[in-house]
Design a protein around this nucleic acid. Structure first.
Length: 779
DNA sequence: ACCCCCCGAATTTTT
DNA sequence: TTCGGGGGGT
């Protein structure tokens, strides 16, 4: 297939771990190179099938990354290609970084020359910068983030006279994103789609938006791929040069690719057809962002004769965890189907706990973590994974209260902060003066007496001339259009930028940033600010300058912040992790806590409303991803009452709990959580370790056991009724009357003063408490 | 030009 | 509840 006649020299040094092997010339079997030893047969097959299209279906924890990196190492060792002839794309920077590191370890030393290992977007940007002029950009184009995108759209919407209350810019941004993800340029947007925004003006706005981007010399995230696609389609010679360059292609997380990425890959792969895609349809959780699981399903059609390798031996989790996850995911209709297995010894069942509310849930989770920690587990091996970031606060509060060191991944990002964005805006204008979004952001920050009217004038001019704001500003200072004061102010700003741009040629970026923040008066602005947030902002600015120092060039820094949003959190010390399910993909921990498994929250009501069954299946895959993060144990919990969006909702346990095969699950639910009285405040007794041996506890175990027989995991009686779960009171609960003496495992003995179904008001020694009947026993 | 209050909306998120 | 945006007031 490849006819590299010349020997792609070993600028990958021949190291001890990699012994370059000559291409086999006869049928003499070669001794396996050391890096192939220890791979299982399937893994080895995936590594050694170098030529032609290959699809690797890699289940969770089956050694996917190892296969990917070993395959790359094998390619290099076999001298199939120069490092610079291999295209290796990942979805996230994290994955790219990890791959780089591991290849480094494998072949010993730094991976020099593997310049085409990166995310879709970073590689897209790289290619686009090389040929920018062919798509109407200049090579120093700015990469806009979502925020810039929306601000630009807002301007266009306003000009069109569209009511942005009825049709918010966010909505249009979402649509444009969707179109770009599908590889649709404005002229290709289906007529039906266009009506999704402002009676069909969506397409026109999309067109205007694209035009404006060119004037601003800017590209949004979607463009990094879409414009690449256009570049290849309109310039066959350019496409051909890349087809020839990329002798081998490797794609990670293939199930997450969108149509644009798919088309891009398919164009490039038409050269050698040496493309290897690795993915797991069961872990596709980015459908809402345009990912097409179909890409993985139709791989064999697109690449006839493709070799398909399944990795099914799991090296991560216990059989219990694996079985529970497999059982759950088997409820999905649309999947290729895999059977994961493991040689690992039995572990402990998945524990499902039902409690009263979020506070108690947080307490329970943290108690459990504390216990693990005391038994010697490292906190860094413990993770709490939540469906939405709104769930994090309560958990954080508890973690802080009990002093468990923890780390939040994702969440509010450093570069998203106001002061970071402002500082970066200055730098962006220096690097690329036509970046009007950045220019507008800081033209009057700090205040320079350049008000709304002045900016409006600049806007009008820029629109009329089809030029950027900066260019408009330039021309306006030589005209009579503005009042003398305003004209002077604008001239002043331009003067500063001219000076800084000059200095940028010689100064390292962090020094430049310092000068800019100082001379612009931006730092001073915060120094004079009396609000309590000012000191933090100043600290952040310093931190920002420091991080700019990590880069050699201003361009390099700007590229970094545009494409690498998540900061590398150097985990200092032993910390537990708290993150969303989405950001947990690809990670693994010994112990995993999964709070908030309630209908409406998980599966998310919104997803189900918007995407129906497809959405539900994606949520289920998310649950599958969640469970398979764990090596040793999983705790799932749900609450009866959840505080969401400022109000209390009574919630039913997630249907996913029902779907876990009961034989791998251990239930630990308070009885009577779901019996009437919805919404009333009710002090709930909770189970703690000290009550495990109490009669109440034992009775609960018995109740549970009798229920387990007919319907698996349940809470009280669970009936499937027209797709809705209905939970009733536990019929077997003991009955009490006013005046009875009872004993509670936690509160001691007391007298019942009120009975309401299974809820009792009991006068204990320490005061009256409302408890659930299943928690007390006759005294 | 700035500040404050009220209203409405409210995943997931990488790039 | 909390955040952000817009409108109105100073």
């Amino acid at each position: 297939m490849t006819d590299n006649t010349e020997d792609p020299l070993g600028d990958i040094a021949e190291s001890e771990t990699v012994r370059p092997v000559k291409q086999a010339t006869g049928n003499i079997p070669q001794a396996a190179p050391p890096y192939l030893r220890g791979l299982n047969p399937m893994q080895r097959e995936a590594v050694e099938a170098l030529d032609g299209p290959v699809l690797v279906l890699a289940g969770a924890g089956t050694g996917k990354t190892r296969v990917l990196t070993t395959r790359l190492g094998h390619l290099l060792a076999r001298r199939k290609a120069y490092p610079g002839q291999i295209l290796a794309v990942t979805f996230t920077n994290k994955a790219a970084r990890e791959m780089k590191e591991r290849i480094g370890q494998l072949i010993g030393g730094v991976v020099e020359g593997m310049q085409w290992l990166g995310t879709f977007h970073s590689i897209g940007a790289m290619i686009l910068r090389r040929h920018a002029e062919l798509v109407g950009l200049r090579s120093n184009f700015t990469i806009l983030d979502t925020d810039d995108q929306i601000r630009l759209l807002k301007q266009l919407i306003e000009i069109e006279g569209i009511d942005d209350k009825k049709y918010p810019a966010r909505l249009l941004a979402g649509l444009i994103d969707k179109w770009k993800n599908k590889g649709l340029t404005p002229d290709k947007v289906p007529a039906g789609d266009a009506f999704a925004y402002a009676e069909g003006k969506g397409t026109e706005l999309y067109r205007q938006y694209q035009e404006r981007l060119k004037v601003l010399n800017a590209a949004d995230f979607g463009d990094l791929l879409l414009e690449n696609l256009r570049l290849f389609q309109e310039n066959p010679d350019v496409l051909k040069s890349y087809q020839e360059r990329f002798q081998y292609m490797l794609v990670d997380e293939y199930q997450d690719t969108n149509v644009a990425q798919y088309l891009w890959l398919r164009l490039l792969a038409q050269g050698t057809k040496n493309i290897c895609c690795v993915g797991d349809d069961d872990q596709s959780i980015y459908g809402w962002r345009g990912a097409e699981v179909d890409n993985i399903l139709k791989f064999e059609k697109d690449f006839p004769g493709a070799k398909v390798v399944r990795l099914e031996q799991n090296y991560r989790s216990t059989p219990h965890i694996l079985a529970a996850a497999s059982g759950l995911i088997s409820a999905n209709e649309t999947r290729l189907g895999k059977t994961l297995w493991t040689e690992a010894k039995e572990g402990e069942p998945i524990r499902v706990t039902g409690v009263w509310d979020g506070e108690e849930e947080a307490r329970t989770v943290c108690d459990e973590i504390e216990a693990l920690h005391q038994k010697g587990s490292k906190l860094s091996e413990i993770a709490i994974l939540v469906r939405t970031s709104a769930q994090m606060r309560q958990l954080e509060e508890r973690l802080i209260t009990v002093a468990i060191p923890y780390q939040v991944f994702g969440g509010a990002r450093f570069f998203d902060r106001e002061e970071s964005r402002d500082a970066n805006a200055y730098l962006r204008v220096i690097a690329q003066q036509d970046d009007s979004l950045a220019f507008e952001r800081i033209i009057n920050k700090p205040s320079r007496k350049i008000g709304k009217t002045t900016v409006q004038t600049l806007h009008k001019l820029s629109r009329a001339e089809g030029c950027s704001l900066y260019a408009a500003a330039k021309s306006v200072v030589d005209s009579e259009e503005l009042k003398p004061a305003a004209r002077k102010a604008v001239a002043n700003v331009l003067g500063m930028f001219e000076r800084w741009r000059d200095q940028a040629k010689t100064l390292p970026p962090d020094e430049l940033a310092e000068i800019v923040l100082d001379e612009s008066g931006y730092t001073e602005m915060w120094q004079n600010d009396r609000s309590p947030k000012a000191p933090t902002k100043l600290d952040n600015l310093q931190e920002l300058v420091r991080s700019i120092g990590d880069h050699d060039t201003l361009q390099g820094y700007l590229e970094h912040i545009a494409l690498v949003t998540a900061i590398d959190k150097t985990s200092d010390g032993d910390q537990a992790s708290l993150m969303t399910l989405h950001s947990a993909k690809g990670l693994e921990f010994d112990y995993v806590f999964l709070p908030g498994w309630e209908e409406g929250l998980f599966p998310s009501q919104r997803t189900m409303d918007e995407s129906g069954l497809v959405g539900l299946e994606e949520e289920r895959r998310l649950a599958y991803v969640a469970i398979t993060r764990a090596r040793k144990r999983v705790w799932i919990s749900h609450v009866a009452n959840r505080f969401i969006n400022g109000s209390w909702l009574s919630a039913l346990p997630s249907r996913f709990i029902e779907e876990l095969p009961p034989e791998f699950v251990e239930l630990e639910a308070e009885q009577g959580l779901y019996g009437g009285m919805g919404g009333s405040s009710f002090e709930e007794a909770h189970i703690d370790n000290s009550s495990y041996d109490s009669p109440g506890w034992q009775r609960m175990q018995r109740n549970k056991a009798t229920q387990a027989g007919n319907k698996g995991p349940g809470f009280g009686q669970v009936i499937d009724d027209v797709g809705k779960l209905i939970v009733t009171n536990d019929p077997g609960a003991a009955t009490y009357a006013v005046g009875d003496n009872v004993r509670h495992p936690k509160f001691g003995t007391g007298v019942i003063s009120e009975v309401d179904g299974n809820k009792l008001l009991v006068e204990f020694e320490q005061g009256a408490k409302r408890v659930i009947s299943s928690f007390v026993e006759p005294a």
